Simulated assay, not measured.
Amino acid sequence: MSAQGKGTFPLFDEQRSADIVNARIGADVDPRTRQIAQTVVKHLHAAVKEIEPTHEEWLAAIRFLTDTGRMCTDWRQEFILLSDVLGVSMLVDAINHRRPGAATENTILGPFFVEGVPLSASGANICLDGKGEPLVVQAEVVDIEGHPVQGAVVDVWQTNEDGFYDVQQKGVQPDGNLRGKFQSDAQGRFWFRTVKPREYPIPDDGPVGKLLAKLGRHPNRAAHIHFIIQAPGYETVITHVFAPDCPYLGEDAVFGVKESLVGRFEKIEDPTRARSFAVSSPFWLTAPSFVLQRNNEKRPAKS
Rank of each mutant, 00 (worst) to 15 (best):
S120W: 12
N295T: 13
N295V: 14
A37R: 13
T39I: 04
D74F: 05
A253P: 05
A37N: 10
S303G: 15
G233W: 07
I80M: 15
M1W: 06
A27L: 14
R193F: 05
A222N: 08
K196D: 04
Q293P: 06
A253Q: 08
F227M: 00
I225S: 07
S89Y: 03
T159I: 15
G5Y: 11
Y234W: 10
V172A: 00
L135T: 06
A46W: 00
V291D: 14
A37I: 09
I62T: 05
N220D: 01
H97V: 11
D30C: 04
V48P: 08
I225V: 14
P300W: 01
E56P: 00
L261I: 00
G233A: 12
P300S: 04
I144Y: 02
Y165V: 01
D129A: 06
R34A: 12
G132T: 02
R217L: 02
E105F: 03
D13G: 15
Q35N: 02
F12L: 13
F113D: 01
R76A: 12
D204Q: 05
V291L: 00
V136G: 09
I108R: 09
F283Q: 10
H55D: 12
D143G: 09
S83E: 05
V257M: 02
L119H: 08
A222V: 00
Q77W: 07
G233I: 15
A152R: 13
T236E: 14
D185A: 00
V92H: 12
S184K: 03
V149K: 00
P219I: 04
R217D: 00
T236I: 14
A274E: 07
Q168A: 02
E78G: 13
Y234R: 10
D13M: 02
F283W: 08
E57N: 14
W284I: 06
G132L: 02
D67L: 04
Q35A: 12
C72V: 15
A213D: 00
K170P: 05
T272F: 10
A18K: 01
V208R: 08
